[in-house]
Write a protein that binds this DNA or RNA. Sequence first.
DNA 1: CATATTACCTGACTTAAGTCAGATAATATA
DNA 2: TATATTATCTGACTTAAGTCAGGTAATATG
Lengths: 291, 291
Amino acid sequence: MTYDPVFRVRRFNRAVTSEVGALDTSFLGRGRPLGAARVLNAIGHGQSDVAVIREFLGLDSGLMSRLLRSLEEDGLIETVANPQDARRRIATLTENGRSEFHAYEEMSDAQAETFLARHSRPEELLRAMDIVASSLRRDRVVFEEKDPRHEDARYCLGEYYAEIALRFEKGFDVSLSRDPDAGDMKRPRGAFMVAISDGLPIGCVGLKGSGGEVAEIKRLWVAPSARGLGLAKRLMTAAESIARELSIKVLRLDTNSALSEAEQLYRRTGWDEIERFNDDPYPDLFFEKRL
Amino acid sequence: MTYDPVFRVRRFNRAVTSEVGALDTSFLGRGRPLGAARVLNAIGHGQSDVAVIREFLGLDSGLMSRLLRSLEEDGLIETVANPQDARRRIATLTENGRSEFHAYEEMSDAQAETFLARHSRPEELLRAMDIVASSLRRDRVVFEEKDPRHEDARYCLGEYYAEIALRFEKGFDVSLSRDPDAGDMKRPRGAFMVAISDGLPIGCVGLKGSGGEVAEIKRLWVAPSARGLGLAKRLMTAAESIARELSIKVLRLDTNSALSEAEQLYRRTGWDEIERFNDDPYPDLFFEKRL
DNA sequence: CATATTACCTGACTTAAGTCAGATAATATA
DNA sequence: TATATTATCTGACTTAAGTCAGGTAATATG
């Protein structure tokens, strides 16, 4: 017996729509209309190009202009013409603007902390929030090529190794996490791709080149909170298209039959099972795809 | 290595505030201002007393009056004086109002279904949404005394037995779920209490009386999605206060040491460990509290 | 019974948000 | 170079939402 799924989704909708105020009232509470506060916030987060902010917040040009004037009159921002294109304007915070922005930031941080502090199992609540946020914004995930030693890449790899270690009872040699392959997962031999959802890395994949026509797919990982969104497939597609760019003709990968979701994905997307091509102890399944 | 909790809460806030439209646009999309749509929706859900709706939606009396007039002019509702108190008004849907309300309901249902259908692990997404919703609305949980055979009570008991069966490897005799104790968990001997969060039962507790001065606490259960909110303690407090109403002097309970959260709760809230007082096979810990 | 309170209504007002039609100056294009 | 396009600005407008003071009729209270 389980409750109607549609009822549960709608219950969630009611909860967030009636409590969004409780979630984050930092936009209010400083005596400024929401619109002006949102513009100030965007500028504070480094968005300086007026047209970009306007597009991002979905504002009419007239309204945007007026909001900028009101922030300017309050001495919070300054605008100057863009030197590359004098039609466009660039907005920056003044000293007062920075302190006002920080006041908003601190309110928002404090509210988030209070919300978590009321829960005695904050890690589970956070996991749930990650799942919902990733699902809501699934269409805004961005795929960025990163150096495997970049902070975001290392975060993903750390999570990947931690999970591997958990799933294979025999454990996993953590020394590998120093990643001897890093050099082969950078241009021009290969690449490393991170999926980022509103600032949070939620997946990665490595393309480990050899300099020749054969390359390997490594480190395919999707955060537990982002599974079910089809991210692994999108990561693989991205990796394949980089491989084509690099004139790679044959892709290989190894995996373990315990990772059944991965196995299914490969079989569904044109990979063929092949003979073992290395003597690593962990994998027991080997695939190949000709591009 | 884990991401900053405050960052993750704020990411969630951004996701819901920027996608609430995507979550439920059913209030819009029918050419009616949000305020009027919300009033129509409240009436459709059976709230007929104007003052109650006004309180619930937090509206000024003047504004409420105007919204009612506009719905009346559109032929969607009718208002009559309350026969018990002619100052108050009662609003009901007309035939047109009912079909308009159903149009909103169907849009909302369809959107919830679409949202779920895009996810390949809907049950995990639902669990996450339950956790977040229960946490957001923790202060609006209502405790209702119910007959143990009432639908909500039976839902809780079903979940309780299912969980017990999972936690004790030896399994659990499901025939017990027919609940031979039902008669003792009703007034005047005892009571059964269900915690309900916006329509979803998320916890329960039974007070099983004997007719005398000794009663037992049974079936304390909190939904996995509502743990960490202090609900068990509130349920126990509610059960104790009913026990006092019923002139019960001694409360007893049995539990299993595998349920460590429960054991800690009892020890923290004035219960004393006592000798075994029954020969049930499952419990191995026994407590007593004098009221 | 006189008076206070309550629930609702009405009119006059404010604010936030947004739309729309030009105007201006800079830049891109034929 | 003439023309079109673009980014921003300005003024005039609309709509939704809400506030506030005062009014009416019903009900509660001393």
